[in-house]
């Protein structure tokens, strides 16, 4: 009788007959799925193209919305306007995120000394989440300069301020939801180590809260990108306003299409970042839930 040596190295894994059959079946299924998807996309695409281009007014619409010559002429102005959108977005998003965080923190302050701060912060989020952006814009860009104060900032800065104030209210609530989503046992653990309330917020609660709400925060920044153009109501020329001016000169709407395409192109990287952050957050949550 022979005995196997006690520490035989593990032999390489050979898939069983059943596993090989399952793998072959899944491969066949994948090929079928791809073919079906390709066929249905082709059918739907053809139908759409036929329906749109076959419409009685298609030639007129194409001429007034898709004229390549008009698009080429309008592009420089629209791009100049878009550069204003980008600069405004960067500044206003940073400002609104900071303001939102400060307001959310103010609402978590405890103790009688901070009652006015808490009340002010709560009043702010109630007011500016309810107030339409356009009204805030008019108040700040038309009303405030009317005070004729010394050292009045430019209309652009005031318009940006209107955006920061409006979006700050939304972002504050997102931050607050994140802060409140951190389990009380985390606070208890931090306090039991002797950390003060502030240290607990700074080192334990906020890092977890911000990570959790990063996806919705970025989503609001994507939404903000479309609204920064509204400052043009007060004078500064953004991409949409530049397209409008170009349209007024040629009576052709193609510049709007140019601006729209540029906006979408601008949004794609931001949306991609948002999706990546969301995915990472979901993966991390899933792992720690185990």
């Amino acid at each position: 009788m022979t005995l196997a040596p006690p520490h035989l190295p593990p032999s390489p894994h050979v898939p069983s007959e059943a596993q090989r059959r399952r793998a072959a079946y899944r491969r066949r299924q994948t090929v079928t799925s791809v073919l079906v998807a390709a066929a249905s996309t082709a059918v739907l695409g053809t139908l759409l193209v036929v329906a749109v281009t076959g419409a009685p007014g298609w030639d007129r619409v194409r001429a007034s919305f898709g004229d390549p010559a008009v698009a080429r002429d309008a592009l420089p102005e629209v791009l100049t306007g878009l550069w204003l959108n980008v600069r405004l977005l960067v500044c206003c998003a940073a400002g609104a995120l900071l303001l939102g965080l400060l307001i959310a923190l103010a609402r978590t302050l405890r103790g009688p000394v901070f009652f006015p701060v808490r009340a002010l912060a709560a009043g702010y989020t109630y007011t500016f989440r309810g107030l339409p952006l356009i009204i805030v814009l008019y108040l700040l860009t038309l009303g405030v300069p009317g005070l004729r104060l010394q050292g009045m900032p430019s209309v652009l800065v005031l318009g940006g301020l209107a955006l920061v104030l409006t979006y700050g209210g939304y972002l504050a609530e997102v931050f607050r939801a994140g802060i409140e989503s951190v389990h009380p046992s985390q606070l208890a653990a931090a306090r039991s180590l002797g950390l003060t309330y502030r240290q607990t917020m700074r080192h334990v609660v906020l890092p977890q809260a911000v990570r959790r709400v990063a996806p919705p925060l970025l989503n609001d920044v994507v939404a903000m990108q479309k609204d920064v153009g509204l400052v043009s109501l007060a004078g500064p020329i953004d991409a949409v306003r530049a397209a409008q001016i170009a349209t007024a000169e040629t009576f052709n709407y193609t510049p709007y299409i140019v601006a729209g395409v540029l906006f979408v192109l601008l949004a794609i990287p931001l949306i991609a970042v948002t999706d990546a952050v969301t995915l990472r957050a979901a993966r991390r949550q899933g792992r720690s839930a185990r």
Binding site: S185, Q186, A188, A189, A190, V204, P207, Q208, R211, S288
Partner: peptide
Amino acid sequence: VFQSYNLFPH
């Protein structure tokens, strides 16, 4: 020390 550990996950 707590029943549910309460380590800081971040």
